[in-house]
Amino acid sequence: MNPEHEHAERFTHLRPLLFTIAYEILGAATEADDVLQDSYLRWADVDLSEVQDTKAYLAQLVTRQSLNALRAQARRREEYIGPWLPEPVLLDAADASTDVVLAESVSMAMMVVLETLTPDERAVFVLREVFGFEHAEIASAIGKSTTAVRQISHRAREHVQARRKRFEPVDPKTSLELTAQFFVTASTGDIDGLMSMLAPDVVWTADSDGKVSAARRPVSGADSVARLVVGLIRLGGPDGRAEPAFYNGAPALVLYLGDNLEGVVSVEIVDGKITNFYAMRNPEKLAGVTVSRAIGR
């Protein structure tokens, strides 16, 4: 096989895995795509006869490039206006639900937890807990000793477990029906009806970076969130509409005002109640949300 074609074939075969690694480290799909493009250029110059394990080699390459990108954007994150949410990724619900571990790992709730880790902790957690790479392989990827990686892995796992209680995955069809029913009820202004579908401590978090109108602090509590949603729907008026979709393996609604994309609201459901709304309103992060991307091992 032509070396150029073999480089492309190996990379393309692993692209869903590589994209998922980059996305989970960066929390941004567009930046993950950029990392993959840069990684491929580096990969194209590699002598394949010296590569013993293509999957491990490419995973390490993409991890290093992702960490470089994450550290480079640290200042931009510090100057961000309001809550910072991961960029939503459009997924086919059937694809995500075929692998419960992977579907959970890219859920908006998990992505938000990953944001609380240091860059090294984040990379180690993703490579070890999600994809099962050996500590020695991860050490090579992040430039740490195997002993240090074991310590980082333990610390990151405890951190995530403390903030993310595992629960049984909700049937995609049922969860999307509940989400759609919530917004239909909201259009009637029925506050009590809305509150019956919300967990008492439900939280609405919106990401706008100050570029469009949105709550700059999370809104908590069933009554407050219900009234917020009713107010938003009234503000949209007759030109507003919501279309169901699946982002990050969970139900979501894509919001339009006329022909303009206004936002994506991802929903987290636990025990039949909505516990979190993640509203992406930042126009820059909405630029690529309608592009379907593959994830995988």
Score class of each variant (00 low, 15 high):
residue 213 S to Q: 14
residue 279 A to G: 03
residue 101 V to R: 11
residue 205 T to V: 12
residue 75 R to E: 15
residue 285 K to G: 14
residue 252 A to W: 05
residue 8 A to W: 01
residue 293 R to Q: 08
residue 125 F to L: 05
residue 7 H to Q: 04
residue 56 A to R: 14
residue 48 L to D: 12
residue 266 S to N: 06
residue 13 H to R: 12
residue 79 E to A: 14
residue 76 R to W: 14
residue 125 F to Q: 00
residue 11 F to I: 00
residue 31 E to Q: 12
residue 57 Y to M: 04
residue 234 R to I: 09
residue 116 T to E: 03
residue 162 A to C: 03
residue 221 G to K: 04
residue 47 D to L: 12
residue 132 G to S: 08
residue 73 Q to E: 13
residue 27 G to S: 09
residue 191 I to N: 02
residue 101 V to S: 09
residue 218 P to E: 10
residue 149 V to D: 12
residue 294 A to S: 04
residue 153 S to E: 03
residue 290 T to W: 08
residue 282 N to D: 08
residue 19 F to V: 08
residue 4 E to V: 01
residue 195 M to E: 13
residue 236 G to D: 06
residue 134 E to M: 11
residue 20 T to V: 05
residue 206 A to W: 02
residue 35 V to E: 07
residue 130 V to C: 05
residue 52 Q to G: 10
residue 139 A to H: 06
residue 174 T to D: 15
residue 48 L to Q: 11
residue 14 L to V: 01
residue 35 V to M: 13
residue 217 R to F: 11
residue 259 D to H: 10
residue 21 I to W: 02
residue 65 Q to V: 03
residue 181 Q to M: 11
residue 33 D to S: 13
residue 107 S to P: 03
residue 49 S to H: 15
residue 120 D to E: 13
residue 228 L to G: 05
residue 85 L to Q: 06
residue 191 I to V: 15
residue 41 L to W: 06
residue 293 R to H: 09
residue 211 K to I: 05
residue 146 T to F: 12
residue 203 V to T: 14
residue 279 A to M: 08
residue 47 D to G: 13
residue 4 E to I: 01
residue 226 A to R: 06
residue 168 E to P: 03
residue 164 R to A: 11
residue 210 G to T: 12
residue 64 R to A: 15
residue 259 D to N: 13
residue 95 D to Q: 13
residue 2 N to A: 11
residue 193 G to Y: 04
residue 285 K to T: 10
residue 94 A to K: 15
residue 43 W to Y: 15
residue 47 D to R: 13
residue 74 A to V: 05
residue 98 T to H: 15
residue 177 E to R: 15
residue 198 L to F: 14
residue 203 V to H: 03
residue 20 T to P: 01
residue 182 F to H: 05
residue 155 R to N: 04
residue 281 R to Q: 07
residue 246 F to E: 07
residue 134 E to F: 13
residue 154 H to N: 11
residue 204 W to S: 06
residue 45 D to F: 10
residue 280 M to D: 09
residue 244 P to C: 13
residue 289 V to R: 01
residue 260 N to R: 14
residue 229 V to P: 02
residue 113 V to F: 00
residue 266 S to T: 08
residue 52 Q to V: 13
residue 79 E to H: 10
residue 73 Q to K: 14
residue 5 H to W: 04
residue 178 L to I: 11
residue 107 S to Y: 04
residue 20 T to Q: 05
residue 55 K to D: 00
residue 247 Y to G: 02
residue 147 T to A: 14
residue 119 P to F: 00
residue 178 L to R: 07
residue 297 R to A: 07
residue 80 Y to T: 12
residue 143 G to W: 04
residue 67 L to I: 15
residue 282 N to A: 06
residue 47 D to H: 14
